[in-house]
Design a protein around this nucleic acid. Structure first.
Lengths: 208, 208
DNA sequence: TTCATAACATACAGTCTGTATGTAAATGAA
DNA sequence: TTCATTTACATACAGACTGTATGTTATGAA
């Protein structure tokens, strides 16, 4: 009856407590901000004490890093799920960017991943996380487009970073109320501009 | 002898104290970070007390905003100074972006303006500051390029924001040790990609 | 000179972070 | 099964910081 409450393995306890803390912290960090969320509030929401927090995480920043890590993974998963496997290189990039913008509409996600994340963890740490999750598919898409000759060859790391930065800013602007149509148009124009041939526009007649 | 110390007008006192506080805060915010800099340290460096700080600024965040404001103005001035008046629209944009990247090499400036700024003040407030200083010349350059038909017509606000975001990320990457050559090349390619005609195949200009 | 106000300085209350210490539960060896 | 050790917490504490309240001195106006 109360068998599963008594006699829980240490691994189960750790896993559950960590998950509770990350879940509570995620909620508060997205509802408010990193700076405006104190550890007392987090542990209260998680139903544990600060002792548990500092047992499982080095400090508040480490808990934040775990939240960011998980959220970045979620975003990457949503993008992967939304982008069908076989499209042209260009269409795959556009589908991916749409999926990214859609994923970033989750409340508080932009502040967590695009404002607090870089400020608290540093741009280098955020790059490391991004490269492990979100940016990977973007970079692969760009490499594929370059291989298919539908994009001029450029330094891949730099191009990935700068396009990602543009996506990020677009997500922030859209959340702030800007026209997603406008931003999407500019993003597409930026990507299409990188193709050596005239862009496969729906309006202009292709010259070949 | 001590005449100019006694009998200072209130306006002079306020001006001097505010300037001292902003200068000290700027130094510490660029050397460390907003979060790692306490008001006791700031007022000690400025040679005043916390009472003076909270008399002149609503809170620590307001002082930070004043620092950011001033720093953004400085960056804009450096760009204006470095970009000669009459170039082709394209060359003007490139000169401006080079000047921006050069200006952002000042120690701690990227963290202040690109990491802490957005996180502490919010993206909206940062946009407001940027639009008043740095982004203005960028937007005007883009409008000029579009009028000169050397750039396809696109929503100006969105284009300005996304290119500015790319510049920002480039500045961060370069400071983190990335190849400025690579990032410059990608920035130029992004801008050239927006021209309706094939990009002018000029040889690469010296990076500084 | 006198009174009001601005420009500070000092003192205080509340909160937060990280650590140190104490306790109960689990693990593994004997 | 026993028992020592380690893990997973809970509690208590020290230090620091932020914002405010209050007191004091200098300036400005009448």
């Amino acid at each position: 009856m109360q068998q599963e409450l008594r006699r829980r393995s240490n691994r189960d306890r750790t896993e559950a407590t960590r998950a509770d803390l990350i879940r509570a912290a995620r909620r508060l960090f997205t509802e408010k901000s990193y700076a405006d969320t104190g550890t007392p509030e987090i542990v209260a929401a998680a139903g544990v004490t600060r002792g548990a927090l500092y047992h499982h995480f080095a400090d508040k920043q480490a808990l934040f890093a775990a939240v960011v890590e998980q959220e970045a993974a979620t975003v990457a998963a949503e993008i992967d799920r939304a982008s069908p496997a076989s499209l042209s290189a260009r269409d795959a990039l556009i589908a991916g960017s749409d999926a990214y913008l859609a994923a970033m509409r989750a409340p508080g996600r932009t502040r967590l991943l695009l404002l607090d994340g870089p400020a608290v963890l540093g741009r280098a740490a955020m790059d490391e996380i991004d490269n492990r999750h979100g940016n990977r598919s973007l970079r692969e898409g760009l490499v594929a487009a370059m291989r298919a000759r539908s994009m001029t060859k450029l330094p891949v790391e730099a191009l990935t970073a700068l396009l990602a930065a543009a996506f990020d800013r677009a997500a922030l602007a859209i959340e702030a109320g800007a026209s997603d149509k406008d931003y999407r148009a500019v993003l597409v124009a930026l990507m299409d501009g990188l193709s050596p041939a005239p862009p496969p526009s729906t309006r202009r007649a292709p010259s070949r």
